[in-house]
């Protein structure tokens, strides 16, 4: 039985909805190339009457956008690398190594996953302060190096692959870490790509942790910088083209990752619903 062709009205409805979802982003980009008066007088047109890149130039002169961008890149790279390594290490042990205390460790992990992020704002600040890493890259990066959800994903993945290869390697006398590093990890590439995507997206878009981990302008990242720009903590005026240019540029990296890994993201995001 072949599926019937969808009715014409289905296309009309879908196209209208798609326009509603896409139009805000097009308005964002269009407005970032407008002059400030034009952004105010004609907020909806997609083609600037006087095309100008002034907003993008002001990102370099008026605000510390390059610093924010650099910090976001540094933090995201370290956090992603850390999560790939530590999450897979712990996930492997929980899935494959029968050690005493494993059940307890897993129970703790599930409990930790239930703690909502916003509840941790004050606690995180307290401990970062207590450890003396407030206003340092360590404070920005180290608390994010591991995530419970990532360990969970890796554990589930390792449980789904056959043990035969590892058993052969064990008979050949390979140590646990060596086996993990040179045999197990290469097999885990699909799950690792998932961790990379989620970590990248998570740490690039993260805001609250960076608010409580530092107040040094030199350590401001993109989300915090743009949020402060938006709330006029960095001077008065509407400055819509400037703000929208900042929002557009900070969206580009996640947009690229999204478009490249689209299929995989849409298939795995069930496990990573954001609030």
């Amino acid at each position: 039985m072949t599926a019937r062709r969808p009715a014409w009205w289905l296309y009309v409805v879908l196209v209208l909805l798609a326009v509603l979802y896409i139009l805000p982003f097009l308005i964002d980009v269009a407005t970032s190339f407008k002059t400030e008066p034009e952004a105010a007088s004609n907020p909806i047109s997609l083609i600037p009457q006087t095309f100008t890149t002034a907003a993008y130039e002001r990102l370099f002169t008026e605000v510390a956008f390059p610093t924010w961008f650099k910090n976001s890149v540094v933090v995201t790279l370290f956090v992603t690398a850390g999560r790939v390594f530590f999450d897979s290490l712990a996930g492997y042990a929980l899935a494959r190594i029968p050690f005493r205390g494993r059940g307890l460790m897993f129970a703790i992990l599930v409990a930790i996953m239930a703690v909502p992020n916003v509840v941790l704002l004050i606690p995180k600040f307290l401990v970062i302060n207590q450890l003396g890493i407030y206003n340092s890259y360590a404070g920005l990066i180290v608390p994010l190096l591991v995530d419970a959800a990532g360990i969970f994903i890796m554990k589930n993945f390792f449980e789904s692959i056959p043990v035969a290869v590892e058993e052969q390697a064990r008979i050949d006398g390979a140590g646990t870490f060596r086996m993990f590093w040179s045999i197990v990890l290469p097999m885990a590439r699909p799950a690792l790509v998932t961790i990379v995507i989620l970590s990248f997206q998570g740490s690039w878009n993260e805001l609250s942790h960076f608010i409580v981990a530092a107040n040094d302008p030199e350590l401001t990242n993109l989300t915090k910088g743009v949020a402060q720009l938006a709330s006029n903590q960095l001077g008065q005026g509407t400055k819509y083209p400037l703000k929208l240019a900042a929002a557009a540029v900070m969206t580009i990296p996640v947009a690229i990752v999204f478009l490249v890994f689209q299929k995989r993201i849409m298939n795995t995001s069930g496990g990573a619903v954001k609030g």
Partner: peptide, 8 residues
């Protein structure tokens, strides 16, 4: 990011 969407 929620920040970029809020600005928009």
């Amino acid at each position: 990011s929620a920040v970029a969407i809020t600005v928009l």
